[in-house]
Measured scan of single mutants.
Amino acid sequence: MSGNGNAAATAEENSPKMRVIRVGTRKSQLARIQTDSVVATLKASYPGLQFEIIAMSTTGDKILDTALSKIGEKSLFTKELEHALEKNEVDLVVHSLKDLPTVLPPGFTIGAICKRENPHDAVVFHPKFVGKTLETLPEKSVVGTSSLRRAAQLQRKFPHLEFRSIRGNLNTRLRKLDEQQEFSAIILATAGLQRMGWHNRVGQILHPEECMYAVGQGALGVEVRAKDQDILDLVGVLHDPETLLRCIAERAFLRHLEGGCSVPVAVHTAMKDGQLYLTGGVWSLDGSDSIQETMQATIHVPAQHEDGPEDDPQLVGITARNIPRGPQLAAQNLGISLANLLLSKGAKNILDVARQLNDAH
């Protein structure tokens, strides 16, 4: 009898209710805020589980004197976190989706994509230029951005401005803007500013005609071990179906173009009346040469937790077992079709030249 009692006690200790789920994140304040929001949602869904947040620095956090596009290494903000995932030191990792490459290392998958916040870019102005827009900034004003995508589009749109690289986390960039006289304004992701509670610093939100956004911008991705079915089931509740389908289309477009950090590629997606609209573009580094096109596809946005595919093969690095396969494939095909259209119009040449120029500098 006593033996059975011990077995029952052991089973209770090993039951999922007692389990601590370890969540990996970057150390920056924004990353911690984003991770806290994901953990809060998981806690609400699984009140019996405990969650421990483990923060670590990544290569991208450490190399702050070089433009991201020049470092010449993929997975700048993800490699150390993936290493911890691989060694079973954490069970899942919360990322900004735009930091996750469209091809993940073997053994990993994006197990959830959370509801997207505003994906557009924002302009934050130096205190002396508050009330201005990019259009009304004085001639030769210097605007800071760490992104080739932003610089290429904005140089084309605002030729009277000069664009220079600015690195560091959000706090560091804002301090550089406010305390030094080098920059009249800087460009940042609206979602990051909003998550930090800095709505009052948003001086201008850039519309798609001015600057399309990065693939996955404004959404959070939760990376897990691809074979860890328990954790895949656990994080599945975080999937937002519309965000998922938009981001599958965007990531398929980028992957098929073979774009990345070192080339200016941008997108804009919208879901309306059962249609998914995808606009994508590529630019030369100075913005003088560009190709942009829009395509659409009829896609039914499923309700969360309709029964999805059981075999769960990944699409552009994403596993969404609780979302039907048909809409996911339709979104992926839309991204591939748009990429093929741009490639047929000469996108590869623009991107190759951009890559060579970026590598040469």
Rank of each mutant, 00 (worst) to 15 (best):
S37P: 06
V38H: 03
L42Y: 04
S45G: 08
F51K: 05
F51Q: 06
I53W: 06
T58G: 01
T58W: 00
T58K: 01
T59L: 07
D65L: 04
T66Q: 06
L68F: 06
S69L: 09
I71L: 12
I71R: 05
G72A: 15
G72D: 07
E73M: 08
L76R: 11
F77G: 02
T78Y: 06
T78K: 12
N88G: 09
E89M: 09
E89K: 09
V90H: 06
V90T: 07
V94C: 14
L97I: 08
D99G: 05
L104G: 08
G107C: 12
T109H: 08
A112R: 00
I113P: 01
K115C: 08
K115A: 07
E117V: 13
P119M: 03
H120N: 12
A122E: 05
H126V: 07
H126F: 07
K128V: 07
E135Q: 13
L137C: 06
P138H: 09
E139D: 13
E139I: 14
K140V: 10
S141L: 10
V142H: 10
V143D: 04
G144Q: 00
T145A: 15
L148C: 09
L148N: 00
L148S: 06
R149P: 02
R149G: 00
A152S: 04
Q153G: 08
L154H: 09
L154R: 04
L154K: 05
Q155M: 11
R156W: 11
F158R: 09
L161I: 09
L161M: 12
F163Y: 11
R164P: 07
S165L: 04
S165V: 10
I166G: 04
R167A: 10
L170Y: 15
N171G: 11
N171P: 06
K176V: 11
K176D: 09
E182G: 15
I187E: 03
L188P: 05
A189C: 10
T190Y: 07
T190N: 15
A191S: 09
G192H: 01
Q194F: 00
G197L: 04
W198T: 06
H199N: 14
N200W: 13
V202Q: 06
I205E: 14
P208F: 14
E210L: 13
M212F: 15
A214C: 10
V215S: 14
V215W: 00
G216R: 02
Q217K: 05
A219P: 01
L220G: 04
E223Y: 03
V224D: 01
D228P: 15
D230I: 15
D240M: 04
D240E: 15
E242F: 15
E242Y: 00
R246E: 02
E250M: 00
A252Y: 02
F253H: 05
E258V: 15
V265G: 04
V267Q: 01
A270G: 06
D273H: 03
Q275N: 04
L278Y: 01
G280N: 01
V282R: 01
D286I: 15
D286Y: 04
S290F: 12
I291H: 10
Q292L: 13
E293A: 11
T294D: 00
M295P: 02
M295E: 07
A297V: 05
H300Q: 10
D307S: 08
G308P: 06
P309M: 01
E310Y: 01
D311K: 02
Q314M: 00
T319S: 11
T319K: 05
P324I: 04
P324C: 05
R325Y: 07
L329P: 00
L329R: 15
G335R: 01
G335Q: 04
G335W: 03
I336S: 15
A339E: 02
L343K: 05
S344L: 02
L351E: 14
V353I: 06
V353R: 07
A354E: 13
D359G: 13
